[in-house]
Simulated assay, not measured.
Amino acid sequence: MRVLDSEFVQGFIRMANDGWEQGWHERNGGNLTYRIKKEEVESVAEALNKEGEWEAIGTSVPKLEGEYFLVTGSGKFFRNIIIKPEDSMAIIELDDKGENYRICWGLVNGGRPTSELTSHLMNHEVKMISSGGKHRVIYHAHTTNVIALTFILPLEDKVFTRELWEMATECPVVFPDGIGIVPWMVPGGRDIAVATSELMKEYDVAVWAHHGMFCSGEDFDFTFGLMHTVEKSAEIIIKMLSMRPDKLQTITPQNFRDLGRDFKVTLPEKFLYEK
């Protein structure tokens, strides 16, 4: 099968374009990676080049040894993924130690995988372990309203989680574990990767202060839907604050407990504090 004809590649392209259309990927902003299933790798095996040079990841992710990933390219524009996919993304293979990668397909006009590859792979390893292998997608985007909130809310997990939960009833159901916050750090390096991976042991969403959002999920639909829900809730906060600085009414801690019971989700009590 041609790589571009495969369902997983088409799903990747659609998700990338959906993010572009939301306005989350100005210029070459954001990145997306997918841990490819074994049967999907086998379906495109004949199109993969196994002769490429090995390159250092910049960290060690031994649990991901031998895995294949579909990744966006560094410096590539999300708006071009749908029209120039072979130039904009790549399939990479990790070596048997999880320390190096090589490009097996894509980036036909040259280039490298996303500059956030270290963060993505460290978090893929964490989420693969914590989800029992179910999580396969890591997505980073520059979500406008969430970024705006990082300038006016305390950079604390419990504050962001509670405020976002209160804005829309579905939020505690969509992200019941809450949201982690990474203070501003230089992007692209190992430090932000380590800080994010510590949070992702507990959460599926990490907000990078003054930068954007980082989400993990089982597939493209769940991961995009998670980010979309968080960003929409942030938009509601921004609109509410533009009308008045305080709330006349809101969802209470007991309301959240009732919601959790009926929807069969566990909501951590640390987020249900009395204000």
Rank of each mutant, 00 (worst) to 15 (best):
R2T: 13
V9C: 08
G11L: 07
M15R: 12
I36T: 07
K38C: 03
K38T: 10
N49P: 07
N49D: 15
A56G: 04
T59I: 04
T59G: 04
S60C: 04
K63W: 11
K63N: 06
L64V: 05
L70Y: 08
T72Q: 07
F77S: 09
I81Q: 07
I81L: 15
D87A: 01
I92F: 04
I92K: 05
G98R: 02
C104H: 04
L107D: 01
V108D: 14
G110P: 04
P113W: 13
L117M: 14
L117A: 00
V126R: 02
G133T: 05
H135A: 02
Y139T: 00
Y139F: 14
H142A: 03
T143H: 07
L155G: 00
E156H: 06
E156I: 08
V159Q: 09
V159M: 09
L164R: 08
E166C: 05
E170K: 02
P176C: 05
G178D: 07
I181K: 00
P183T: 00
W184S: 02
W184Q: 07
V186I: 14
A193P: 10
A195W: 04
S197L: 02
L199G: 00
V207Y: 08
V207K: 04
A209C: 03
A209K: 05
G212C: 08
E218Q: 12
F220P: 11
F222T: 15
M227P: 03
I238M: 14
L241D: 12
P245H: 10
P245F: 04
T252I: 03
L259D: 11
D262C: 04
F263V: 10
P268F: 06
K270I: 11
